[in-house]
């Protein structure tokens, strides 16, 4: 690879590359590595949320209990549906809006700003607004659709509802990144395609999509990671209910730790969730990030 053929000798390469990456790694490491190690330690104990004396070692019993608990597997399944639903939805709407706003038309800058509103709006208030819009009795949604749906109170609907609300809150992130990706595609490529007589669709397939590739793979990865541990919207909207219908793994973790005070048990769920994300990430990076990584 040409990448190895840099203008610097090898030891210098190492030094420069390390000097560039270490500051970021240190900040992240300092804030996150210590908590992760603590959590792994706690997951092997019966620690309560707050302990005045050292907790006693419990081996892998927390893990064994969760892995044999059907609630855990159900929750994992719900988490996966939520994660992939949100990722696919956010990406699709993000791509659509990015393509639209990358076209040349008057007032584009203003619309590019406005499309970010869902993302920029404070989450606490946005979720409460949704909650009210979706209210069975007084909600504008049921009123406009003439429907009588318990969007957040019916266990058959709730998971779809929280997925849609999360997509709505998150898609502008995809819009911004994809828009930037589109802007970085050299215009010459389109001009060349034009000269070759390529149709709009052909241009999209042969110029736009390959041009987005470097941001695509990363964007999807990050959407998955952020959604997998995202608790705020579900917690505010349904609290994991009704009847556990939206009880994703982060909700279990939160309840175990802060409502039931079982920090050891909560840590085990957290580490299991981390393990699943790690597997997803490794598989994904093998497939999509390899040539660039």
């Amino acid at each position: 690879m040409s990448r190895m053929r840099t203008a610097l000798p090898n030891t210098a390469v190492n030094r420069v590359s390390a000097a560039l990456i270490l500051p970021a790694a240190i900040v992240m490491g300092a804030v996150v590595i210590y908590p992760i190690l603590t959590t792994i330690g706690l997951s092997l104990t019966d620690a309560p949320l707050i302990s005045l004396s050292p907790p006693s070692f419990a081996g892998l019993s927390n893990y064994a209990e969760w892995l044999s608990n059907p609630d855990f597997w159900r929750s994992l399944w719900i988490t996966l549906i939520y994660t992939f639903g949100v990722t696919i939805g956010s990406y699709a709407i993000g791509l659509f809006t990015a393509l639209l706003l990358n076209l040349d038309f008057p007032g584009r800058a203003i619309l590019r700003g406005l499309v970010l509103l869902p993302w920029a709006i404070p989450e606490v208030a946005a979720v409460m607004t949704w909650n009210w819009m979706l209210d069975y009795q007084f909600g504008i949604v049921n009123s406009l659709l003439g429907s009588q749906v318990g969007w957040v109170t019916d266990s058959a609907m709730a998971l779809w509802t929280v997925t849609i609300v999360t997509i709505w809150k998150q898609f502008p992130l995809a819009t911004v990144v994809l828009l930037a990706g589109l802007q970085a595609i050299p215009r010459e490529l389109y001009e060349a395609a034009n000269v070759d007589g390529a149709s709009r669709l052909q241009q999209f397939v042969h110029v736009t999509l390959p041009g987005l590739k470097p941001v695509n793979s990363v964007l999807v990865m990050m959407l998955i990671l952020y959604t997998f541990k995202r608790i705020s919207i579900i917690y505010l909207l349904t609290g994991g209910g009704p009847a556990k219908a939206t009880e994703i793994l982060p909700v279990i973790t939160y309840l175990e730790a802060f409502k039931y005070f079982r920090l050891g048990s909560a840590s085990a769920v957290g580490i299991l969730a981390l393990g699943f994300t790690l597997v997803i990430t490794l598989v994904y990076s093998r497939v999509f990030l390899r040539e660039e990584a």
């Binding site: 992240m28 908590p35 990671l225 982060p250």
Partner: peptide
């Protein structure tokens, strides 16, 4: 890859150590 790993722990577990 480790950078990605820092995003994988539930916030409720980060709270006390941080």
């Amino acid at each position: 890859l480790a950078i990605l790993g820092t995003q994988m722990l539930s916030a409720s577990l980060l709270a006390i150590p941080i």
